[in-house]
Design a protein around this nucleic acid. Structure first.
Ligand code: ZN
Ligand code: ZN
Ligand code: ZN
Ligand code: ZN
Lengths: 164, 164
DNA sequence: TTGCTAATGTTATAATGTTGCAAATTCCGC
DNA sequence: GCGGAATTTGCAACATTATAACATTAGCAA
């Protein structure tokens, strides 16, 4: 599991999906939680790429599947997956993405490329510590930390327009 | 301007509002931007407390004012105010709050109390630096950084339930 | 079986945000 | 001041995201 900046490089994504699903099954077993067909299918769809997917995008694919689903179906599945740390919601995009650190205790930080739309989830201890410290200075007790960085990934950094 | 953790303590909030409006007028003048009555009124409403306000909350108050406004009116005003750094949007809440560092270059970090709903905006260089560094390690070029920390403010920290 | 609980289906509705165009206002050079 | 350009606002319709409420079904255990 040395796959740090994977989303930005070509790679065999089916491996990502397979690993995520296997991990999910294992985690749900540990939690005594039921990874039902709908939930598993939603997780698989969320993992269809490293770009976050909106709830209604998921819904649309379920419909193509022939699954007669309404919004609550999707939101419930997503809630379940979030609860068990299998997906994250990206607040600045109203969209969801598969967690690449499922099972590990981690505070995600998300790098979101404006251009290609891919999202990389990092665990950045330096950032977490700095946030904790800054909060402590205000006697604030953090509970849920959202860190979302939009910008340009290495493949999409705009060329510096050098003259001539 | 030594008012760091103001929102969590009782204070004369009219001073906050007055300062914010004065600052806004000054900044808009510098930017050659027009702080029209609607925009100013929206800013004033956003500043009605240190709790973020939803666009439709603003809209409702405008309606009470007798101002016959539709959603675009509010969203346009909010866009304008954001553009000039007078308000921030809190992505995790779909709500807006007055900027307490207007005019200064700053990367806001928001401490959001689950209980009282107040929000404190901080400038935390340690956090900004850590984020920049973590992004750089991935050759990622940050553009827009969202840091929102939900938790409990000093006035609302749940008592440790000591027995007896 | 029977009865309980978790999960899903179904319908409707709430909350948030946008598009497009027309009318009004403001600005600016004359 | 006057007239045309640019900005701002009004307005209607619509799009997207999320939830509430209640009926039904599936899983499981006594
Ligand atoms: Zn992949
Ligand atoms: Zn994660
Ligand atoms: Zn105040
Ligand atoms: Zn600010």
């Amino acid at each position: 599991m040395s796959s740090s900046a994977l989303p930005y490089r070509p790679h065999n994504h089916e491996v990502c999906v397979a690993q995520a699903l296997a991990e999910a099954r294992s985690i749900c077993q540990q939690h005594n939680a039921r990874l039902t067909p709908t939930r598993e299918r939603v997780l698989e769809l969320i993992w269809q790429s490293h770009k976050p997917l909106g709830a209604y995008d998921v819904l649309a694919v379920l419909a193509e599947d022939g699954h007669n689903a309404a919004p609550p179906t999707v939101y419930r599945a997503l809630d379940f997956l979030q609860q068990h740390g299998l997906v994250h919601r990206i607040a600045s995009l109203n969209a969801f993405i598969g967690c690449t650190h499922a099972g590990e205790r981690h505070n995600g930080m998300f790098l979101i490329c404006h251009t290609c739309g891919n999202v990389l989830e990092l665990t950045a201890p330096g950032v977490s510590n700095a946030v904790t410290l800054a909060a402590a200075e205000q006697s604030f007790q953090p509970d849920d930390v959202t860190i979302e960085v939009a910008g340009y990934c290495p493949r999409c950094v705009p060329e510096p327009a050098h003259d001539r």
